[in-house]
Amino acid sequence: MRVNEVMTRHVRVASPKDTIREAARIMAQIDAGVVPVGENDRLVGMLTDRDIAVRAVAEGKGPDTTVGEVMTPDVQYCFDDEDIDEVCQNLGDQQIRRIPVVNRQKRLVGILSLGDLALSGGNGATGETLAAISRPGGMHSQADH
């Protein structure tokens, strides 16, 4: 099965010039903690609720801070024609739940989430991916080191 068979196609995108308030409203409307950031039809970053909390609020930045100031510019993505099994392996390895989908011209065409994989019926890869994503440790662990 290919990514383009299960991905969400109509993706809300924030601009680097938008405020984090505007981006947070998008997140609230779509009920998600992440929004891709695009400029001139290109994916330039991702903004997560964690980015807003850690890179903006914790640093004393206000709601009029631009998305470009706090977004994550190094974006992991997959291609729309990739095999789901390969993408699931990458999601698990990188411990991410959602990944932007681009075509071979690197234009944003969708987003793939664990929910999309679960709804597709999959081949059991969703459970394995979730287990890998949820494993303890890593950069964001509160476990004693």
Rank of each mutant, 00 (worst) to 15 (best):
G45K: 08
M46T: 14
L47P: 09
T48H: 06
T48L: 14
T48M: 13
R50W: 02
I52R: 15
A53M: 12
V54N: 11
R55V: 03
R55Y: 12
R55S: 07
A56M: 08
V57A: 15
V57T: 07
A58M: 12
A58L: 11
A58C: 11
G60R: 12
G60K: 09
G60Q: 08
G62P: 06
G62A: 15
P63H: 11
P63A: 15
D64V: 04
D64E: 15
T65F: 14
T65I: 13
T66A: 12
V67S: 10
E69A: 15
M71W: 14
M71K: 14
M71R: 13
T72N: 10
T72W: 13
D74L: 08
D74V: 07
Q76H: 12
Y77L: 09
Y77M: 05
C78L: 09
C78S: 05
F79V: 00
F79W: 14
D80A: 01
D80Q: 07
D80H: 03
D80W: 10
D80V: 00
D80K: 00
D81Y: 12
E82A: 09
E82G: 01
I84D: 11
I84W: 07
I84F: 04
D85A: 15
C88L: 06
Q89F: 03
Q89C: 08
L91K: 02
L91H: 02
L91W: 01
G92K: 07
D93E: 14
D93K: 10
Q94L: 13
Q95A: 15
Q95N: 10
R98E: 14
I99K: 04
I99P: 09
P100T: 02
V101R: 00
V101G: 08
V101K: 01
N103V: 03
N103C: 02
N103H: 01
R104F: 03
Q105K: 12
K106P: 03
R107A: 10
R107L: 08
L108K: 01
V109P: 04
V109D: 07
V109I: 14
G110V: 06
G110P: 11
G110I: 10
I111C: 03
S113T: 12
L114K: 05
L114F: 00
G115T: 08
G115I: 02
L117F: 02
A118D: 00
L119T: 00
S120H: 04
G121D: 05
G121C: 11
G122W: 01
G122A: 05
N123C: 04
N123Y: 05
A125D: 07
T126C: 02
E128F: 01
E128Q: 13
T129M: 09
L130T: 06
A131V: 13
I133Q: 07
I133M: 09
I133N: 07
I133G: 04
R135G: 05
R135V: 01
P136E: 06
G137K: 02
G137E: 02
M139Q: 06
M139W: 07
M139F: 01
H140I: 02
H140W: 10
S141D: 00
S141C: 03
Q142H: 15
Q142A: 10
